[in-house]
């Protein structure tokens, strides 16, 4: 996954909230049930003389279609699950799974953090503690974003604590030097 430096310790792994995948799963279940409902609705109109042989053929095609829907569901889940932030005592590693075969890994040293911003909008997000997280650096191009993170307030607290410890370490080294 990620090669840690010597003496580097993982403090926390931050994932997206499970609610982020719920909508996609509802879509997948609609895709599963859709053909059944459609078939039930038009059965009397088009298939009033449906033979057993044709029914088997229809069911065969339906289950082939299910194979693809099942794979689609798993790929969606995989994209959700592999999207993480690893907070260590030295840096934040952002692993972004864009598509199944496309991912981006970037890391940001804690002493380069300028600001940690969280956004929580709406009733559901407030109830479930879901929020968008954004870590900003001095460079406007480098920005870490994790949408729909679990408990962003707590994560922000952890990042800021680790950041302060790292800054103290840097100061100590400079004074000793």
């Amino acid at each position: 996954m990620v090669n840690l430096e010597e003496n580097e310790k993982i403090i926390k792994i931050v994932r997206k909230h499970w609610f982020a995948i719920v909508l996609e799963m509802i879509t997948s279940f609609a895709m599963i049930l859709g053909p059944i409902i459609f078939f039930e609705l038009i059965e009397d109109v088009l298939f009033h003389e449906l033979t057993l042989k044709n029914l088997y053929l229809l069911l065969f095609f339906y289950f082939v279609y299910l194979l693809f829907v099942w794979a689609f569901m798993f790929i969606n889940w995989l994209n959700y699950y592999l999207d993480i932030w690893i907070i260590t005592d030295k840096r934040i590693v952002n692993i972004e799974q864009k598509r199944l075969f496309s991912r981006e890994i970037s890391s940001l040293r804690l002493d380069n953090i300028q600001d940690v911003k969280i956004e929580m909008h709406g009733i559901i997000n407030t109830l479930f503690k879901i929020g968008n997280m954004q870590v900003q650096t001095s460079s406007p191009e480098i920005e870490f974003i994790l949408p729909q993170a679990i408990n962003p307030e707590n994560v922000k607290h952890i990042i800021m604590e680790a950041h302060n410890r790292e800054i103290e370490k840097v100061k100590t080294v400079k004074i000793q030097g």
Binding site: K53, Y56, F60, F63, L67, A71
Partner: peptide, 18 residues
């Protein structure tokens, strides 16, 4: 995947056997 594949194959066999 295996379960759905087996069910789909069963229906294909049933279709071909009639």
């Amino acid at each position: 995947i295996l379960i759905v594949f087996i069910v789909a194959s069963t229906y294909l066999i049933l279709f071909l056997s009639i």
